[in-house]
Design a protein around this nucleic acid. Sequence first.
DNA 1: AGGACGATTAACT
DNA 2: GTTAATCGTCCTC
Length: 204
Amino acid sequence: MAVARSRLAATAVQVAPALLGAVVRSRAGGAEVAVRITEVEAYEGLDDPASHAFRGPTPRAAIMFGPPGYLYCYFTYGMHWCANVVCGPDGTAAAVLLRAGAVIAGADVAAARRPTARRDRDLARGPARLAACLGLGAAHTGLDLCDEHSDVVLASMPDQPSAVICTGPRVGIRAATERQWRFWLPDESTVSGYRRHPKARYPQ
DNA sequence: AGGACGATTAACT
DNA sequence: GTTAATCGTCCTC
């Protein structure tokens, strides 16, 4: 099954905590891996200087302005891919970065894709690690996560947001570090540690 | 056409 | 704690 698109039509700040505990299932790359999400970040559009959508619908960011429920993968630091769930109503820019999760199916495949991981909890601990586990890259941006026949599916979301959710500044960004738009589940060993950007405008 | 800078990770000291 | 790896994107000539 796949999550209804309407559940993703709210702002990124609203959708992000609701995605904690969600399950993403991927058969990209020919083998099935599923992850339970434990850490996310919200990126809104034109008012968020840390968002790829801040400068408008550039070729890369255009998908953030489209309808919710689609996968946005981007390439960063010349070597890594990261994965987002596009959210917000059509015409507004918003996405939730999947920062970390626990592998709940296909751990053998995930481990083969993450040869440097020393423990299971490190397989999808970090956004580029999570995307690597799921086999995601350029070919998968634009996939419909709300179509259960897609290679990458948002299989489930909790009916109610978790009772206790931690928040803090987003990781690795220079601007808008005062916004507490990173959300994670407490007591989860897969949550990545906070790392301030070396050139952040405000100390954190 | 040129260059700065990453929504990061791993491997160092 | 520090730093190299590595290239697409986007801004500024």
